[in-house]
Design a protein around this nucleic acid. Structure first.
Length: 695
DNA sequence: GTGCTAAGCATTTTT
DNA sequence: TGCTTAGCAC
């Protein structure tokens, strides 16, 4: 039981409290992952509970597989029966087995946002509604809110809204497709309505653990309740200060009402932080204390004060990005230990431009997903409509790639038969035998039909990767790419090879059929795509950084309108607190060094706009400045330049961005010193001595 | 049915 | 600024 020795008393309590409902309020960096993994280990190793009876839910597949690896490492053996999974993956697997309860077929396809949009546009067209007046994006949101029983403040004629919703839903049913929300909703429905099924699962999972509990929504809560059964051995771990997904239905009441809902619930607070320096924690505490909707909590550490938090202002986004790049280069740290965070995805563009120019290797987390790339989507749409011949959405994409002479008119004709049969294969057959298709179109449809028939037959006899590879050859997809675009061909071919490679990888992990692989491609998250093996700086939104930590964190674009985000603030009166929690999450990702920055002018839609600095930068008292900092040893791995040296008027200093300059004046400012420097190119500038990166 | 050009729209956050 | 879509010529 060596593994218990590594825990502090509170953590240990959480691990040893194995019966009944337990709420662990775990502050940022307080070792909650360790608590969950150790708890699982303890259940198996000490109490001899079968891994088959344990279920743990996490937020990303990456977190799930890391947890599993940790457990396996401590136990010293692989644990194939232990289920650690995301909610969505768990539900997908559940439904692959149990969807028969709803009278539906098991070979359903999971529709992502793009597919949903396509279905909605089709629905609008058939209801003869103008797509401009009813933007698919907003409708998608409304549908999601509806499925989650959430309030909706966008007004639409209720009858019309219901009509659109019903059409959308029946279209998904016809196509045998589920959207992300359906995965949770239908799983919940089955558990609720089938006593037999619910008992089977709640009896199996004697011990349930939920990570990032503050970001679970109402449906997830119901799901947990059903699975936990009458005598819940349920351990949830979360931090209301890090709740950043209320717009997606995350319901803070799940945490706040836990004690009321589960009688005799125990509560354990973890406040000791193992991640960040005291300066960073002090800053974080001062940020979050402004929020009213929270339980009092204060992070502390036994570690050193570390460096003060740096705040900097730049004329434009370019200078901001260049300064970040210079600091990264100067620090001499491994790139993999550094991340740049921002509120909105479009801010990554400046960074990418500058990093590429300065030859700083980076990986963009989020944005366009690997499986969302055009060439990958093309191939997957083939596979999808072959696996599930009711998938019209994928069929209508696949049939004319490469061009087979099938355009919108031909597609409409096939759709006529699809509406009667609900199956693309029979629809094609009937369209052909009834002679409504002629010439090139008929030939094209015939060849596609043959392809579907042939590959349906071989889908069960070949491994997914070999099946996919021969599919690629059969449609001559690589040749098609070569014709389409000479400039991007290399990258696209690489991506296709990577797709096959990722299938082989999953086969090794036990994925044996294509449907399962397709689930994987739909449910992959941004974080899942982070490659830890390469030495690159990570660029991502703060949402994507949830649960991660880095030695050095840059938070950029701290400007009113961007962060806090204008659109978010328009939503409701609680939005500002959520933005502040988001800022808190950003700050607490940093282990050693934290840089905050904003720019006066920001390029948006191709032209410049002026934004005042974010209120988050000024609404708290001064950042902590440690008076004895010049003699304290900087934490390992941080690359902060020397700051304690005496500086005199007339000295020459070198600034990473502005270059060589001469010190014109020095004046005290609080505990710090104001330094005026004249640069040959950039003119005269004023710095705070403790924060200026002079060499 | 395909392919080109110009206009117009986009930026909250994601499984 | 950069991407998608509508409209038009072939």
């Amino acid at each position: 039981m060596d593994y218990l020795e590594e825990l502090n008393p509170e953590q240990r309590k959480a691990v040893e409290q194995i019966e009944g409902p337990l709420l662990v309020l775990a502050g940022a960096g307080s070792g909650k992952t360790r608590v969950i993994t150790t708890r699982i280990t303890h259940l198996i190793a000490y109490y001899g509970i079968s891994p088959y009876r344990i279920l743990a839910m996490t937020f990303t597949n990456k977190a799930a597989s890391e947890m599993k690896q940790r457990v396996e490492k401590v136990l010293g053996s692989p644990q194939p029966d232990l289920v650690i999974s995301t909610f969505h993956s768990f539900c997908a697997r559940f439904l692959r087995r149990e969807i028969g309860f709803l009278g539906r077929e098991r070979n359903f396809i999971i529709f992502d946002t793009q597919d949903q949009t396509k279905v909605l546009k089709d629905v609008l067209k058939r209801l003869k509604l103008n797509a401009k007046e009813y933007p698919a994006g907003i409708l998608r949101q409304k549908i999601s809110l509806r499925k989650n029983n959430m309030p909706d403040n966008v007004f639409l004629d209720p009858d019309l809204e219901k009509k659109i919703f019903d059409r959308y839903q029946s279209e998904l049913l016809t196509q045998n497709a589920l959207d992300f929300d359906d995965l949770l909703v239908l799983t919940n429905q089955i558990l609720e309505n089938s006593d037999e099924c619910r008992q089977r699962y709640s009896q199996r999972f004697e011990h349930i653990m939920i990570d990032e509990y503050q970001d679970t929504n109402r449906i997830q809560f119901q799901l947990i309740t059903q699975l936990a059964g009458d005598k819940p051995n349920l351990c949830v771990v979360g931090d209301e200060d890090q709740s950043i997904y209320s717009w997606r239905g995350a319901d803070i009441r799940n945490i706040l009402d836990f004690e009321n809902h589960f009688k005799d619930a125990k509560i354990i607070k973890l406040e000791q932080n193992y991640r960040s320096t005291q300066n960073i924690l002090t800053y974080a505490n001062r940020v979050i204390v402004k929020n009213k909707q929270r339980k009092p909590k204060k992070l502390w550490t036994k570690g050193s004060d570390g460096l003060p938090v740096s705040k900097r202002r730049f004329p434009r986004g370019i200078e901001e990005a260049e300064s970040i790049a210079e600091r990264i280069k100067m620090s001499g740290m491994s790139y993999r230990h550094i991340a740049v965070l921002y509120r909105v995805n479009f801010l990554s563009r400046v960074l990418e431009e500058v990093f590429r120019r300065k030859r700083i290797p980076y990986q963009l987390v989020g944005g366009l997903k690997f499986y969302d790339r055009k060439e990958i989507k093309d191939i997957l749409s083939y596979a999808r409509c072959i696996v599930n011949t009711r998938d019209w959405t994928s069929f209508s994409r696949a049939i004319n790639i490469p061009t087979r002479g099938v355009g919108s008119v031909t597609l409409d004709r096939i759709r006529f038969y699809y509406d009667q049969t609900g199956d693309i294969q029979t629809a094609m057959e009937e369209a052909l035998s009834n002679g409504v298709l002629k010439g090139r179109a008929a030939k094209g449809v015939k060849s596609f039909l043959d392809l579907v028939v042939r590959f349906r037959a071989s889908s069960s006899t070949k491994t997914p990767s070999t099946w996919m590879n021969s599919l690629l050859n059969a449609v001559e997809y690589r040749e098609h790419l070569r014709k389409e675009d000479v400039f991007t061909i290399e990258k696209r071919e690489d991506n296709i090879n990577e797709l096959i490679e990722s299938m082989r990888e999953l086969e090794k992990q036990g994925v044996k059929d294509i449907a399962e692989f397709l689930d994987f491609t739909a449910l992959i998250s941004d974080q899942d795509q982070i490659d830890d093996s390469v030495d690159k700086v990570s660029l991502m939104t703060i949402h994507a950084a949830k649960g991660l930590e880095f030695d050095t964190i840059f938070v950029m674009g701290l400007e009113e309108g961007i962060f806090p985000n204008k659109r978010a603030l328009e939503e409701n009166e609680h939005a500002l607190e959520e933005e502040r929690r988001l800022f808190y999450v950003a700050v607490t990702r940093a282990k050693n060094t934290l840089y905050l920055s904003h720019s006066k002018r920001r390029m948006t839609y191709g032209s410049y706009f002026d934004n005042p600095p974010s209120r988050f930068l000024s609404e708290k008292s001064r950042p902590p400045i440690n008076p004895i900092q010049s003699t304290s040893i900087p934490p390992k791995g941080s690359g902060q330049p020397h700051q304690g040296k005496a500086m005199l008027v007339g000295d020459t200093v070198v600034h990473p961005v502005f270059g060589k300059g001469t010190v014109l004046a020095l004046s005290p400012k609080g505990l710090d010193m104001r330094v005026t420097v004249r640069f040959s190119v950039y003119g005269t500038r004023v710095f705070l001595k403790s924060k200026a990166p002079f060499q």
